[in-house]
Computed example of a mutant assay.
Amino acid sequence: MYLSMFLGPNVRGPEDDRLALELSIEQALLADAAGFAAVYLGEQHYNDYEPYSDPLVMAAHLAPQLTQAYLGTSMIPLPRHHPLALVERINLLDQLSAGRCIIGMSSGRPVPDPSFPVPFPEGGAAQLFEEKLQVMLAAWVHRRADGPLAFETSTERGSMPNRMMPTNYRRGTPLWAIGTNTASKVHASGVLGRKIHTAGLDAAGTAKLMGVYRDGMTEGGIAAETVEENLDWFLHTKVVFVGETDEEAAEAAAPMLIGRSLPPWIFTPPEQQGLQLVDLLRVDPGPMASAMGQPESLAAFIQKTSIVGSPATVAARLQAFEDAGVRHSHIRFVFGSLADPDLFRRSLRLFIDEVMPQLRTQTMPALRADQVADHSGS
């Protein structure tokens, strides 16, 4: 089993920004020392979530401090970025981490973002994502001897006259993945051999999506070695909070999970009204939505996105994913209010000391010599 940590703190306002940054760095170093496979950072703008804002800058700060964990992004909204400028920054992180990075990218919001006033093409964010991805892939294989690299997307056009600087450390391209829970996109990515990161589903739903992904890779004739690497990086995402007992954990986590504004598509059926978090984690939740924006009950939303309980409960929930064939768990340990950051410190300490010994965790293997780029003839 691989474990990744997602550094996704919420803040109440600017008074918490420094605390959130310091806590993120602290937890990243603990994760690296404990044997987590990767530390992931997200990208947010103009709100109170992930106040480091730029995952590549934050990752560059962490790169020399981590001894074995990969650095990942979850997710860079590709339509917001100039593709060549993004390749430059990703390559720099690839060099600083000696190839130990993986870049998760997504289409971002399905409608134009008012804070990013660039009109989408007819095919929407998905089309713009693919246009920019193709420019990035071309830039990664481009060499000085090829001459200028002309490019055009729905939002920019131009030419790279010389070469990409810096070049990438890892042969071919830095590792990258697409974030989606949509079965058709997962299958199509499998056909092309692209890596996939998924959001929260239960073990059965995640395993079903992985089956769709395997089928796509089989259909695409993807090499066995690449299939295994892709399955190692096929991760699901969970919020995790650990307490000494199930009741203690639920009491501490309740204000942060149900005592907040919930997405408008979450509803509370009569039989779930008035239930405490410890009960919502145990009741029959009804059907779980396969993607964000689809209606589901409060219990379904909580059970799909969260694992809360004693070390034994948390270990059993994570083990269920490995038993279903899902190898990689992507865990967010800080969420909700930072009014008492020691709550999260204690939770992570319990996870490292009492949950991880119950799981068969491993780190990602070191790069082989043949995986390092040779640009001597470029």
Rank of each mutant, 00 (worst) to 15 (best):
A20D: 00
E22H: 06
E26C: 00
E26H: 04
Q27C: 00
Q27T: 00
L29H: 01
L30Y: 01
L30Q: 03
L30R: 08
A31F: 01
A31W: 02
A33D: 03
A33F: 01
A33K: 06
A34G: 00
G35H: 01
F36V: 00
A38W: 04
L41V: 04
L41F: 03
G42I: 05
Q44H: 15
N47Y: 11
N47K: 08
P51T: 10
P51G: 01
Y52E: 08
S53P: 07
S53F: 12
S53C: 14
S53E: 13
D54A: 12
L56D: 12
L56S: 11
V57P: 10
V57N: 08
M58C: 07
A60W: 12
A60I: 10
A63N: 09
P64D: 02
P64K: 05
Q65D: 03
Q65R: 15
T67N: 11
T67R: 13
A69Y: 06
L71D: 04
G72M: 05
S74W: 14
S74C: 08
S74M: 13
I76G: 01
H81S: 00
H81E: 09
L84H: 02
L86A: 01
V87I: 03
E88I: 02
I90V: 15
N91Y: 09
L93T: 08
Q95D: 04
L96Q: 06
A98K: 15
R100W: 13
C101M: 15
I102N: 14
I103N: 04
I103R: 07
G104K: 14
M105Q: 13
M105G: 07
S106R: 09
S106D: 10
S107E: 08
S107I: 09
R109N: 15
P110Y: 05
V111K: 08
P112N: 07
P112F: 03
P112V: 10
P114L: 09
P114R: 11
S115P: 04
P117V: 08
V118N: 13
P119A: 03
P121E: 02
E122A: 12
E122H: 09
E122W: 05
G124W: 07
A125F: 06
A126Y: 05
Q127N: 04
L128P: 06
L128C: 03
L128S: 06
E130M: 12
E130V: 11
E130Y: 12
E130K: 13
Q134F: 07
A138Q: 12
A139T: 11
A139F: 09
A139N: 09
W140N: 06
W140H: 10
R143W: 08
R144Q: 15
A145V: 10
D146H: 14
D146I: 12
G147E: 05
P148F: 07
P148C: 03
L149M: 12
A150C: 10
F151M: 05
E152R: 15
E152A: 14
S154K: 06
E156C: 07
E156W: 06
S159E: 13
M160Y: 05
N162W: 08
N162M: 01
R163W: 02
M164L: 14
M165S: 02
M165V: 14
